[in-house]
């Protein structure tokens, strides 16, 4: 069989989701954001909720996420996406709201906003892309930067005495009663990407079911600022980040007592 016979719409098994726009993503080659965006588009498409989903993209590389997925979007100030999402979700209880935040945004400047939104159990999805570094500003130390990790502001490696410890904020979030589903995923292999998609779908379903805050961390790479090839960056992530940011579900209330979660009034 010749190539032209195989390449036929009848034989199509994988194509770009319709909800992804034609805009070329501004991300560096091999950036994890592109994969997470694609998964979001697929999940929103699969659940057929593009007419009721509102995304919030705060400052960071993914502030431009609104250029890539065909839904309504709000750009937000650095760290404030959970507050912005609270404003949308409270006044639009029939809509599905998600934030798309990086580690500097969520775990540093926006630590108060994320903890309180999750603690109130705002009915929303949080996508937390953790690559251990500030991407957009050029590779400075993030709260999640590993001990010894070299960044633009820790040129000799993160030193605990000077910079404190890497923050496992997802573990903190999982303690909060307002969250119903807290998981840590990655997108570095076909298998983990498919698993991550399931996690994102579950989080969006939880929002549709009004189960409070669902939180999906995606341990990711920033190969450009890590100064590695995309392939090497994935290897480095598995070797160095996974032992500290261990992938897996941290909380899944669908498996626990369903009465343990009290939905918000008002």
């Amino acid at each position: 069989m010749e190539l032209k016979d195989i390449i036929n719409p009848n034989n199509l098994v994988y194509e770009k989701p319709e909800l992804l726009t034609e805009n070329t993503m501004h991300y560096c080659p091999g950036c994890s954001h592109g994969v997470v965006h694609k998964l979001l588009a697929e999940v929103i498409e699969d659940l057929d909720i593009q007419d009721k989903t509102i995304g919030v993209s705060p400052v960071g590389c993914a502030v431009f996420a609104y250029n890539y997925i065909e839904i309504d979007w709000q750009e937000a100030a650095h760290g404030r996406a959970p507050a912005v999402a609270t404003g949308i979700a409270r006044t639009n209880p029939d809509k599905v709201v998600f934030t798309y935040q990086g580690d500097g945004d969520l775990a540093s400047i926006g630590a108060a906003e994320i903890l309180h939104a999750c603690n109130r159990g705002e009915n929303m999805v949080v996508i937390f892309v953790n690559n251990g570094i500030y991407g957009m500003t050029g590779g400075q130390m993030a709260p999640t930067t590993l001990i010894g990790q070299v960044t633009a502001t820790t040129p000799n490696g993160r030193d605990v005495g000077r910079n404190g410890y890497p923050l496992k904020i997802t573990e903190l979030i999982a303690q909060l009663p307002g969250t119903s589903y807290v998981t840590r995923q990655s997108v570095h292999t076909p298998a983990t990407i498919r698993k991550c998609k399931k996690a994102i779908a579950k989080a969006f379903q939880a929002a549709l079911d009004k189960k409070g805050t669902s939180f999906v961390e995606v341990v990711s790479t920033c190969n450009m600022n890590w100064k590695m090839t995309p392939v090497k960056a994935n290897e480095w992530m598995v070797e160095n980040m996974f032992p500290f940011y261990v992938p897996g579900d941290l909380k899944d209330s669908s498996k626990a007592d369903p009465e343990s979660y009290t939905p918000l009034k008002n």
């Binding site: 036929n8 993503m25 694609k38």
Partner: peptide
């Protein structure tokens, strides 16, 4: 699946 730029179509 792994392509961050969604530029591969598969048959």
């Amino acid at each position: 699946t792994v392509c961050p730029d969604t530029c591969i179509t598969v048959y």
